[in-house]
Structures are given as structure tokens and as C-alpha cells.
Design a protein around this nucleic acid. Structure first.
Length: 221
DNA sequence: CTCCCGATAT
DNA sequence: ATATCAGGAG
């Protein structure tokens, strides 16, 4: 496990690599952000942006999503994947927003996680990005990076990763850190082919050093 | 834990 | 061909 000083080093190096890391899901208001994040499960945000560009022209309010048939909504988001679950959840979400919140997206994490299709990660993203509340959303990238670097243990659950990060990262850096870790995971410490040889964090990264040793062995043959 | 699922990179 | 993509519900 990394020391406090080593974690500080990671945060500073990530800041150098991705000084302007931010939410890449295109949205004009909290409602659009909730829909976009819900759609982004197991899907690249590039594709989400491609779909929402048209989707948000057609659907502006919760009422709009409830005005069409389930099949029509499914077709409008089909290319995203997992579209049956997502269409169903969007309709439930919109119903809840209208019945319980007057059609307005609530601002607290506690309220957000109760919404259909909104789990801990989505609630954190919306709270952080739309409402400026300190939060660390642990998605696939944040989880992978945290485990490779040794910020947390390999067997930790997503919730445990989030708790560890909140303990070890200063609260006023939660949101930027979360975005920089995503960029670091998405563009550098990739799942398939991480760029360990050019990684500024290699000196403190157990996983990176292990991969570099394997690389040498292969080279020797 | 399983299921949902099309698009894209490798 | 197949692993992976800003996960969540049952």
C-alpha cells in the first residue's frame, strides 16, 4: 500500500499529465447529465455523446420521455447497448422526478441514489459535476488505477475503494482527483495496454514494475 | 452472483 | 475473435 507521501506524488504527477481533466459527457443541465451518466454504463462516453446529441433535441423534460412508447425510447438509445434496462430505468427515473421532486433533479447524494438507474457512482458524478459537491465517483477506470498503483487492495469492493480514496485524498481535491484518475486510466493506464514504459508513476507502481519485468523476460527470448 | 448489450479497439 | 467501455438491478 502506498504511503501518504507516495499518494501525494501520484496526485501531483496526474495533475501535470491532465491539468484540465473534466467531465466529458456533454450536457446543458443537471437533468441531461443524469440521463447521460445513466446511459454511460458499460459504454464509451464518445458513443454516449454521439447518441445524446440527437436524443437531447427530442427529449427536453421528464414528460418528454414519458410521452413516447417504451419501444420508441429503446430505439432512440439502442446503439448504446443495455438499452432495455436503460430505457426502463429512464422512464422510472422520470416518473420519480415528477412525482417526488416536481420534475427537478435533487442535489444531494442521498436523494440521487434513490432514483431508478442511479447508483452510487452516478450519484457521485451528478453531485460533483452538476452541484459542485465534493465526491469521488469510482468507475472502472478509477478502480483499476487505484488497484494498480496500490492505493487500495486488489480485492477491495468499489465501495471500499471509494472510502479509501476519501480518506487519503484531501476533501477539496476529491472532484479534480476523480477526473484526473479517469483521464489517467482512459488515456494512459489503459486496461488493455497500459503505457508503463513512459509512465511518470512507474517508480512507485508495483503493477507497473511487475509488467516491466515480464516485458524484459519476453525481450530476452 | 448474474444479467443486460451494441460499438469499438486490439 | 474478444476484451472493454464513466454500472445498476434483481
Amino acid at each position: 500500500m502506498l504511503t501518504k507521501k507516495e499518494i501525494r506524488f501520484c496526485l501531483d504527477e496526474m495533475k501535470k499529465m491532465f491539468p484540465d481533466a473534466q467531465c466529458e459527457l456533454e450536457h446543458k443541465n443537471p437533468f441531461e447529465l443524469v440521463i447521460a451518466v445513466l446511459l454511460s454504463a458499460q459504454c464509451t462516453d464518445t458513443l454516449v455523446n454521439k447518441v445524446t446529441k440527437e436524443l437531447f433535441k427530442k427529449y427536453k423534460t421528464p414528460e418528454d420521455y414519458l410521452a413516447v412508447t417504451l419501444e420508441e425510447l429503446q430505439q432512440d438509445i439502442r446503439s448504446i447497448g443495455l438499452y432495455r434496462n436503460k430505457a426502463k430505468n429512464i422512464r422510472k427515473l422520470c416518473t420519480m422526478l415528477l412525482e417526488e421532486y416536481g420534475g427537478i433533479v435533487p442535489q444531494t447524494k442521498a436523494e440521487l441514489v434513490k432514483l431508478a438507474g442511479v447508483g452510487r457512482k452516478t450519484a457521485n458524478v451528478v453531485a460533483s459535476v452538476a452541484f459542485d459537491e465534493p465526491a469521488i465517483a469510482v468507475d472502472t477506470h478509477v478502480e483499476r488505477v487505484s488497484k494498480r498503483l496500490g492505493i487500495c487492495k486488489w480485492k477491495d469492493s468499489v465501495t471500499e475503494v471509494e472510502e479509501t480514496l476519501m480518506r487519503k485524498v484531501p476533501r477539496d481535491e476529491w472532484s479534480v482527483t476523480h477526473h484526473r484518475m479517469i483521464f489517467f486510466g482512459r488515456y494512459h493506464c489503459k486496461s488493455r495496454n497500459p503505457n508503463c514504459p513512459e509512465c511518470p508513476l512507474l517508480e512507485i507502481c508495483r503493477e507497473g514494475q511487475k509488467r516491466m519485468r515480464k516485458r524484459k523476460e519476453v525481450n530476452a527470448n
